[in-house]
Amino acid sequence: MNVKVLFFAGLREALGTGSESLALPSDVGTVGALRNHLAARGAPWSALATTKNLRSAVNQQMVGPDAPIKAGDEVAFFPPVTGG
């Protein structure tokens, strides 16, 4: 299945990209599994594993690592927010 993945702030800089569309293997069905899948590419993608308190969203709603992913979803990873 195909999904769009977005990265923000320090994570975006560490990865050198803000977005990517990719086809996922069938065993990657949750946000946490997607994080591990990407981090397994090695540097600089290991930043996904090492970023402290990494947050995630599916279709622009904040979710935890157990949240399911389906085809066409927009998944985002980012550090804790610091607005205001």
Binding site: F8, G10, A76, P79, G83
Partner: peptide, 9 residues
Amino acid sequence: LKTRAPFWK
């Protein structure tokens, strides 16, 4: 807003 809105400084 400080903890839930996706802004980064």
